[in-house]
Amino acid sequence: MSDTVAAEPVADLLAKFSEATPRESLDHPAVNVPMKDAVAVLQWLRDEQSYDFLVDVTGIDWSETTSPRFTAVWHLFSTTKHTYIRIAADCTDDANPSAPTATGLFPAADWHERETFDLMGITFEGHPDLRRILMWDGYPHHPLRKEFPLAGIETELPDIEVADETQAKVISAPMMGGPFVASNKGEMNLTDAEPRAKDESWNEAKPKPE
């Protein structure tokens, strides 16, 4: 991909949408836009710049202490220019983040937005059917948020009858000192490269300190 081709729509976009700013990116051109302009930018990119393929909709949680906490991200691809572009918009509300839906522009946005809602808790306003897609209906958490522990939070099984009969629960998974990660020192050493627990302060033999 040549930079000259890709830089062109970004310059046009910045000229057309005065509140848009360039976004730092290691790969594809990227632009920050205010949330109120997001759909207009997507529509302009689709209709005027031939970005006709919505590749992905996702979100970022910058942590509980950061404001704005959530960012919604759209990745577009042009099937004629063969270039990607990334659009990011900060959610104005940190407690109940929301973003406008892109389902009116790209039908493919439907399930992407459901996934982002399910895992990050970003509500897409105007979505025709904003239900959870991976976790079950009634699951009380959004698992990809920063405050959600990797092992999970104890809660009830989706089916009350089965939960009553089996006495099983959704438990926080035994991590045994995990997450298990390889050495980040960069050396090619098979012994160190073996993923292992960095924290052995609690495991199956030793209970987790309260």
């Binding site: 990797l150 092992a151 438990i171 998974a173």
Partner: peptide, 8 residues
Amino acid sequence: YRSYATLQ
């Protein structure tokens, strides 16, 4: 799968 989504 030591994970929130997987039955152990």
